[in-house]
Computed example of a mutant assay.
Amino acid sequence: MKLAHGLALLPKSRGDEDSWSLMMQKVLIFINNQLNVMFQGLEEEARSSEVVRLLLPPGKDPPPPLGGLTASAKNSDQAMKRPEQVLVSRVSTLMTCCCTMLTDAYPVQVSVPVCSLVALVKRVLMVDGSFSQSSPFMTAMRQDLICLELPELHRCSLELLSSIVKGLRSQLFHMWQISHDC
């Protein structure tokens, strides 16, 4: 919890919209990448690209990774071998960070990536453990472990959805009209 709160406070040190937006973008991309590892074989492959498509306009390069980590093949192989509980812990911590960023006061008005946030929430809530595509990474035991962790991910996703509503308050109707077009 302290890590999520500390990470959410980092953009306040600069106090500009770009710092907040960049941090939110990095966190959402990292969450999405962790979900790619976790949900492999439990969802259609197209779902993972929806969040990235909403975060990164065509032709735009992704920001440097969160924490300066490089996404090498070695790192992704190691992530595949990590227990699902560690992945869930990372994702839930970063979702808490997003919640804090959305609900804490910030010195300037920022553009909230509503479509990306809602797509991420939708992605998590759509996984129920029943879709099992034949995948070399999905064993019955791994699927059971992920299914045990799904309620925690669903809870964090619903908290994120609640934070979107709290953070936007009066802007919600206007933002709904915008996000309805997404």
Rank of each mutant, 00 (worst) to 15 (best):
M1H: 12
M1F: 14
G6T: 07
L7S: 05
A8L: 09
A8T: 12
L9M: 12
L9S: 07
L10A: 11
L10E: 06
L10Y: 12
P11F: 08
P11H: 08
R14M: 11
D16L: 01
E17V: 09
E17N: 01
D18G: 08
D18P: 10
S19Q: 00
W20H: 11
Q25K: 14
Q25G: 12
L28W: 07
I29Q: 13
I29R: 13
I31N: 00
N32F: 03
L35C: 02
F39R: 00
G41P: 01
L42A: 08
A46K: 13
R47A: 12
S49W: 13
E50N: 02
E50Q: 05
V51A: 00
V51Y: 00
V51C: 02
V52G: 04
R53Q: 11
L54P: 05
L55P: 12
D61R: 07
P64W: 06
P64M: 09
P65E: 11
L69F: 14
T70S: 09
S72V: 12
S72M: 11
A73Y: 13
A73S: 15
A73P: 00
N75M: 15
S76L: 06
A79Y: 10
K81M: 15
K81E: 10
R82M: 15
P83S: 15
E84F: 03
E84P: 06
V86C: 09
L87E: 00
V91T: 06
M95T: 05
T96P: 03
T96D: 10
T96R: 06
T96V: 12
T100A: 03
M101N: 04
M101T: 06
D104C: 10
A105T: 06
A105I: 12
Y106V: 02
Y106Q: 05
P107S: 10
V108S: 02
V108N: 01
V108C: 01
P113R: 07
V114F: 15
V114D: 08
C115N: 07
C115P: 05
S116C: 02
V118R: 15
A119D: 01
A119C: 07
L120K: 04
V124M: 15
M126T: 03
M126W: 06
V127P: 02
D128P: 12
G129M: 10
G129L: 11
S132D: 15
Q133L: 09
S134V: 04
S135C: 13
P136W: 09
P136D: 08
T139V: 10
A140R: 11
A140F: 07
M141Q: 13
M141G: 09
D144E: 14
D144S: 15
L145R: 07
C147W: 02
C147E: 06
E152K: 10
L153S: 02
R155Q: 15
S157N: 02
L158G: 01
L160F: 01
L160Q: 00
S162T: 00
S163D: 01
I164Q: 04
V165G: 11
K166Y: 01
K166I: 01
G167L: 11
G167T: 08
L168W: 08
R169M: 07
S170C: 08
L172M: 12
F173H: 14
W176T: 14
I178Y: 10
I178W: 11
S179D: 05
D181I: 10
C182I: 09
C182S: 10
